[in-house]
């Protein structure tokens, strides 16, 4: 795994980003209530972000001094599949609200399974549909979590189904 005596590609950048993030958050923390008193709402955030700044700076100084690792390239940090899935998830998150849960999730599962399994489209579609059905039944039907509906009028369909079922039962 991670070898503390060598610097991985991107590690220096990451440690500097964390310093920047910590400084920014510390600045935000000082704006909450200023140095009003021990019990002010901003005191604890200043303590927490202050600790972040100090430790982030120490880590960054340590990291910069480390010799560069020769055996790992960028590929080791970000293999193709990881980038692929991260991009997929960004698209998923963006599409979830406007398009709705069911279509977005199906496309997400379909593409990721297809690409990673290198299987036929039909097989990937079957697997995706099964997974999605499972998630849908558990979350939407049993736990009543109303995922964004988007373009599928789910609640009308469910109410319709329910009225048919109860109608059939009478």
């Amino acid at each position: 795994m991670h070898d503390p005596s060598r610097r991985l590609p991107g590690e220096r950048l990451f440690s500097l980003l964390l310093v920047a993030l910590s400084l920014f958050l510390f600045y935000e923390a000082t704006k909450i209530s200023g140095f009003e008193g021990l019990s002010a709402p901003g005191s604890f955030p200043m303590f927490a972000t202050g600790s972040m700044v100090i430790t982030a700076v120490i880590v960054a100084l340590q990291t910069v001094r480390l010799p560069e690792s020769d055996e790992h390239g960028w590929r080791a940090i970000l293999p193709g599949f990881v980038i692929f899935m991260a991009v997929m998830m960004i698209f998923y998150a963006l599409a979830l609200k406007p398009v709705g849960f069911l279509p977005t999730s199906f496309v997400f599962l379909l593409i990721s399974t297809k690409v990673m399994m290198r299987s036929s489209l039909a097989k990937a579609a079957l697997i995706s549909a099964l997974s999605l059905a499972l998630v849908y039944v558990v979350f939407r039907l049993i736990f009543s979590v109303l995922m964004p509906e988007g373009i599928v009028p789910e609640r009308e369909i469910i109410a319709g189904m329910r009225s048919i079922l109860s109608g059939g039962g009478q």
Partner: peptide, 11 residues
């Protein structure tokens, strides 16, 4: 497994 885990994470 992993696409399913990601989906579950989102939901």
């Amino acid at each position: 497994l992993f696409p399913l885990i990601l989906l579950l994470s989102i939901v």
